Simulated scan of single mutants.
Amino acid sequence: MDLLFIADPLESFKVKKDSTLAMMRVAQEAGHRLWFCQSRNVLWKENVVLADCQTLVIKPSSTSWFELGEIESRVLNSFSAVLMRTDPPFDIEYLNATWLLSAAVRQGAIVLNAPAAVRDHSEKLSITEFSELIPPTLVARELSAVEEFHRVQHDIVIKPLDGMGGMGVFRVGPDGLNLASIVETLGQNGARTLMIQRFLPEIAQGDKRVLLIGGEVVPFSLARIPQGNEIRGNLAAGGKGVAMPLSAVEKQVAERLAPILNQRGLFLVGLDLIGGYLTEINVTSPTCFVEITDQSGFDVPQFWLKALEKALS
């Protein structure tokens, strides 16, 4: 198979733990041909969607670990699959890229995750479809609504809808200290929508990342455990990643959502769960392949490749 990876610059990869690199390695080892480009290299020209892309060879070295070929223009529907692995934020250029990829899909390209499905599933707001699985949650712009939610829930977490890696996440305890200031700052005085949830003390045991691949559930999660006085378990915010088997509740939630999301074209999904509650559905560029594999012995990249080969057969 010819696989085109649309990703961030290769030089920016964290070689020891990058999930996209893990996918590339296992696909190359299975004899598939790799291609690479950035989203900026995807274009509409002469009524087709093209990519100015390069062949990619992964090398064993941890320093000079890749080799790129000459730039070629190829129509996206000439690849066995196009794998969109550009990291958030989901800004206007990310959105533009999904529209171009949707045009490629109409021309017969296979794009994973499906660009229309990515657009339809805000990583934070999409949990509202499964409201019985989520903690008490408010989505609002007005300070008065947040203040009323705080009066009822007493201990809350406030976060922007477009945040990533734990950026912009604040906890406001029962004393309500700085509530108005936080809402005004994060919400830009009502110009920006916020998500507010009841604080879950189970975060001390970790914010669990559960991977769904091809409609199947990876049986181990990565618990991102906050360190020190932090409330954020995100690895980017200093959380410690610990792989562990799924609990009965986590497995139940994951097995319920896996076939639904896969049917919509979301081949790879990262659920975030705290205390069994669903808090996010990550669809842009889910990670944690390497950490789960190294600590549990369950080969996530190989699991991903087998699911991909099955989906494309």
Rank of each mutant, 00 (worst) to 15 (best):
R264W: 01
Q252R: 14
A204N: 13
E70P: 01
L266Y: 00
S80G: 15
L222E: 10
S61G: 07
V118M: 01
F5V: 03
L4Y: 03
V157G: 10
D155H: 07
C288L: 09
L200T: 10
G241D: 06
Q54H: 03
I156K: 13
D175W: 06
A51D: 05
L133A: 12
N282L: 06
T287L: 02
S247K: 07
S64R: 12
E29S: 11
E309C: 07
W65F: 15
E230R: 14
E67Q: 12
N189A: 13
P226T: 13
E280S: 07
V146P: 12
S126C: 09
V49Q: 09
A223G: 08
I110N: 09
M244N: 06
A27K: 01
W304P: 01
N113I: 00
L212E: 01
V111E: 07
S285V: 01
D272Q: 10
S122A: 09
S80K: 07
L4E: 05
A22N: 02
T185Q: 10
S181D: 14
A103G: 13
D162W: 08
I281T: 01
L4K: 03
Q205P: 02
P60I: 02
L138T: 14
S61P: 05
R264P: 00
D52K: 07
G190K: 06
K59S: 07
Q188K: 15
L138M: 14
F298Y: 05
